[in-house]
Computed example of a mutant assay.
Amino acid sequence: MLAIVAAIIFGLGFLLELLAFEIPGGISGVTFMLLGLCLLALHQAGVGARSDGGLLGGWRGTRR
């Protein structure tokens, strides 16, 4: 989920850079790109990952 949000943020940042547009308060395309990188880092770290298992969670906690 965070990767999808990061892709949307990257797209907005890219459009802002192409149009050379800056939101009042110093928010530019680079700000959106840095936010997208932060979201991708959180995604890679496993934040926001869904767990479907029992106590240990996920497929690693199941025995066959």
Rank of each mutant, 00 (worst) to 15 (best):
F14S: 12
G13D: 01
G54H: 12
F10V: 05
I23S: 05
F32W: 07
L34E: 06
L42K: 00
L19F: 15
S51H: 06
R60H: 12
M33E: 11
M1H: 13
A3Q: 03
L2V: 00
A49D: 12
V30Y: 08
L16S: 10
L39N: 00
L35C: 09
V30E: 13
A49P: 00
R63T: 10
P24Y: 10
R63F: 04
I8Y: 09
R64V: 12
G58I: 02
L37K: 04
I9D: 02
I23Y: 13
Q44Y: 12
L37N: 07
L12E: 04
L42G: 01
G58S: 08
L55V: 15
M1Y: 08
G57C: 03
E22C: 02
G58H: 06
L34S: 13
L18A: 14
I27W: 05
L56M: 14
G46I: 01
L56F: 14
S28D: 15
I9M: 07
A20V: 14
L56S: 14
I27Y: 04
D52P: 08
A45N: 04
R64M: 09
G25I: 05
R50E: 07
R64F: 11
S28Q: 11
L18S: 15
C38R: 03
W59E: 10
A45P: 01
G46Q: 02
H43T: 04
F21P: 03
R64T: 13
A20S: 15
F21N: 08
G46T: 04
G54Q: 09
M1Q: 11
E17A: 10
C38P: 01
A20D: 15
M1V: 12
G13H: 02
V47R: 07
G26M: 10
L15E: 09
G61M: 04
L18W: 08
L16N: 07
L40I: 06
R60W: 08
L37T: 08
G29Q: 01
L15A: 14
G53N: 08
A49L: 10
Q44F: 12
D52S: 14
A41M: 13
F10H: 08
I8M: 09
L40E: 04
A49M: 07
Q44H: 11
A49Q: 12
L35F: 06
M1E: 04
M1I: 08
V5S: 05
C38T: 13
G57L: 04
A49Y: 07
A49K: 15
A6D: 00
G58F: 05
G13V: 01
I27A: 07
G57Y: 01
L19D: 11
A41W: 06
S51I: 12
L40K: 00
G58M: 06
L55R: 11
G29C: 07
R60E: 13
A49S: 14
A20C: 12
L18R: 15
H43P: 01
L55D: 12
I27C: 03
L35G: 07
G26Y: 08
I23E: 11
E22Y: 06
L35Q: 00
G48H: 03
L18C: 13
L56K: 14
G36Y: 01
M33A: 14
G36T: 05
G13T: 02
T31G: 06
S51G: 05
C38E: 09
V5T: 11
G58K: 05
L16C: 06
R63K: 13
W59L: 15
L37H: 01
